[in-house]
Amino acid sequence: MFTVSHVHHIAIICSDYAISKHFYHEILGFKIIAETHREARQSYKLDLAINESQQIELFSFPSPPERPSRPEAQGLRHLAFAVPDLDACVRHLNREGVATEEIRLDELTGKRFTFFSDPDNLPLELYEQ
């Protein structure tokens, strides 16, 4: 039987390591677990804790190709973070200069959500618990 307990990590390749590191660590508040410079690959790998069991691996590589994300390109659509207070999170992002879309209501669950983008325009969602 194939059993999964949870998502362990999400890997993201960024175009500007310093900007993305600031965004995910300083603005979103994810704790740095480890930062590794891989000289042979001319890249960094930053492990960030979302919580006690889930992580983001932030990678940098020289000249990574752009990935189409909109309109609705095939593949991973977005990354969603569950939050206890959507309004407080939106206010925080907006104070940090991060634009958020209008808060919407999920017609299937009745939960509120909104979207915003990381520095590489990766679509991110806040989904109120």
Rank of each mutant, 00 (worst) to 15 (best):
V4N: 02
H78Q: 13
L122P: 00
S60Q: 04
E52P: 00
H8P: 02
E107I: 11
C89N: 10
I103T: 12
A49N: 08
S15E: 07
F116H: 07
E128Q: 15
R41A: 12
E39C: 00
H6Y: 09
R38L: 10
D47L: 12
C14N: 06
F115R: 01
R104S: 07
A40N: 15
E96Y: 14
R41H: 09
Y17M: 12
I56P: 12
R112H: 11
A18K: 14
R95M: 04
M1V: 09
Q129C: 02
Q129Y: 06
I10P: 00
Y127H: 13
E26G: 00
S117R: 14
L76C: 08
Q129I: 12
G110P: 03
D106P: 03
L126N: 04
H25V: 12
P84G: 08
E96L: 00
R104Y: 02
T109D: 01
L126T: 05
R41I: 06
F23E: 08
L46A: 02
I50V: 15
A99V: 10
I33K: 12
V83T: 13
I27T: 11
T109A: 07
R104M: 05
F113R: 05
E72S: 13
F23S: 02
I32A: 04
V4M: 07
R112I: 03
F61M: 11
L28T: 05
P71S: 12
R104A: 11
I32C: 07
L126I: 05
D120Q: 09
F81G: 04
A34M: 10
E101R: 15
A11L: 04
T100N: 05
A99M: 01
F113I: 03
K31N: 10
A88K: 13
T109R: 03
G29L: 14
R41W: 11
L79E: 07
I33D: 09
P123K: 09
N94G: 00
T3R: 13
P65G: 07
L126F: 10
A49W: 06
Q54V: 05
L105N: 06
G97P: 10
D16C: 10
R112G: 02
R91V: 13
M1Y: 04
E52A: 10
D85Q: 14
E72G: 14
Q42Y: 02
N121P: 01
I32S: 07
P64Q: 09
I27E: 04
V83R: 12
K45S: 06
P62T: 10
D85G: 02
A73E: 09
C14A: 07
S69H: 13
E102C: 02
V7E: 01
F116W: 07
S60M: 05
T100C: 15
F61Q: 13
I103C: 08
L79A: 06
L108M: 05
V83S: 07
K45D: 02
H37Y: 15
R77A: 10
K31E: 15
H9R: 09
P68V: 14
L28N: 05
P65D: 05
R91I: 09
P68D: 11
I50N: 01
A18L: 09
A73S: 14
C14I: 12
D120A: 15
T100M: 05
L79G: 01
H25W: 00
K45P: 00
V98I: 15
V4E: 00
D118H: 13
R70D: 04
I19A: 11
F2S: 03
S20N: 10
R104N: 06
S20Q: 10
